Amino acid sequence: MTRSTLWRQEVTKLEAYVPGKSIEEVQKQYGLSEITRLASNENPYGPSPKAIDAMNAAAADSHLYPEPTSAELRGKLGTLYGVDPSQVLVSNGADNVLMLIGQAYVNPGDEVVYCVPTFSVYRTSTVVMGGVPIEVPLTGDYKFDLDGMLAAVTERTKLIYLCNPNNPTGTIVDCAALEEFLKKVPPRVVVVLDEAYGEFIDVPSYKTGAEYVREGYPVISVHTFSKLYGLAAMRVGYAIANPDVLAPVLAVREPFPVSRMANSAAAASLDDTEYREFILRTNREGLAYLSEQLRQMNVGVNPSYSNFLFADLHRDAAPVVEALMKAGYIVRPCKSWGYPEHIRITVGSPDQNKGFIEALRTILEA
């Protein structure tokens, strides 16, 4: 008998998540002292100074369990989005929130609809609960096929996932089209709007998931402090939904999911609006610079509404990715998403962006 015979049957259908290469791994592999990681969509400037101060202050109370409901943070998020704090759930990162949603809603045989490629946790959270993933391909221009998703809805559909902006393509759903889509979704189906990169959308009057929640749609809007706010190591994510929609998610959430330091850092980040605007401005400038430089090298660039670019090298990306690592730059190859000629590039600081472009240009010319 092998140990695998003891596994839950659903686990045998899953593969472990494979993250982008770590800085430490590449340093050791190539003997480099300086590495720039543009693979994991991290904030190149780190957290707000106010968040760092808050973390340091909270560390002194690390012997005490955190306040279990993240009351202060939920209050600030409620003010930010115009919802009652009872409509906000805080947990250990957005991916944890997504797993909780699967645990709360998916029974064996239930169907969950989403487009591919997209964030892998949608499939994982479905399969591990015995659900059936219904995967609809993206359109030719890398956008969500809303009509195809609606056509895939059956009596067994329980959840629909929309990653907006989508990871790895950076595309968004047209606001008017999304509203029409939500009106056509049967009210018994919960739509999960994964807005991990939602703060980067730079479109006037674009509606957030919280607005659909306020209007009464059965929507769960999921966010993270890992991207815009630079708190990836702290693991803070949250969901916004009406209390009856959140109730089963709260029931399966662990008792103390967010540390004192993480709660304090997230709350302080929301207070630092000047830093937030700095990050958004430099990201827009970085997107524009990288897009223009890549196009000059005949690299296909998809319009992005996030903090990364989905770039078509028009050749096998693997040797280019390898050469970039040797030059000290880590990007994310997209072969696992079905795009072997694409890479995903995180927007870095101006110096990081410039250094990356120079390295890529040298590699492509060679």
Rank of each mutant, 00 (worst) to 15 (best):
V116M: 06
D145F: 02
T118Q: 13
Y114P: 05
M149P: 07
D145Q: 04
P133H: 10
A152W: 09
Y142E: 07
V112G: 03
Y114A: 12
L138W: 11
L159I: 05
A152T: 04
R123H: 13
L100G: 07
M99T: 08
T139R: 14
V106E: 00
E155I: 09
T126D: 01
G102S: 08
A152F: 04
R123P: 01
V136G: 06
V106T: 03
R156W: 04
Q103P: 02
M99Q: 07
L159P: 01
P133W: 10
M99N: 13
M149A: 03
V136L: 04
G130D: 04
V121L: 07
D141H: 12
T118E: 15
P137E: 09
L146D: 03
I101C: 05
V121Q: 08
V116Y: 11
F119D: 03
G109V: 03
Y105M: 02
F119P: 00
V106D: 03
L150S: 14
L138N: 12
S125H: 06
V113S: 05
I134H: 02
D141N: 15
V121N: 01
V121C: 00
E135H: 06
V113M: 08
V97M: 07
L150Q: 13
V153P: 00
N107F: 07
V132G: 05
P137A: 09
F119H: 12
Y105K: 07
E155P: 10
V112A: 02
V127R: 12
V136F: 11
L146N: 06
D147K: 13
N107C: 06
S120Q: 13
E135Q: 15
V113L: 07
M99V: 07
C115H: 09
P137Q: 08
V116W: 06
V127A: 07
A152M: 05
P133Q: 08
R156Q: 14
L138E: 14
D145M: 00
V112W: 02
E155M: 10
L98C: 04
M149V: 09
V97E: 06
S120I: 15
M149C: 14
T126I: 00
L159G: 04
Y114D: 04
G102K: 04
V97R: 05
S125E: 09
F119R: 11
G140M: 12
P117C: 03
P137V: 03
V116G: 06
V153I: 15
G102V: 05
L150C: 14
V128A: 14
N107L: 10
G148M: 08
Y114Q: 06
E111K: 12
C115P: 14
Y114V: 01
T118L: 10
T126Q: 08
E155A: 14
E155C: 05
S125C: 11
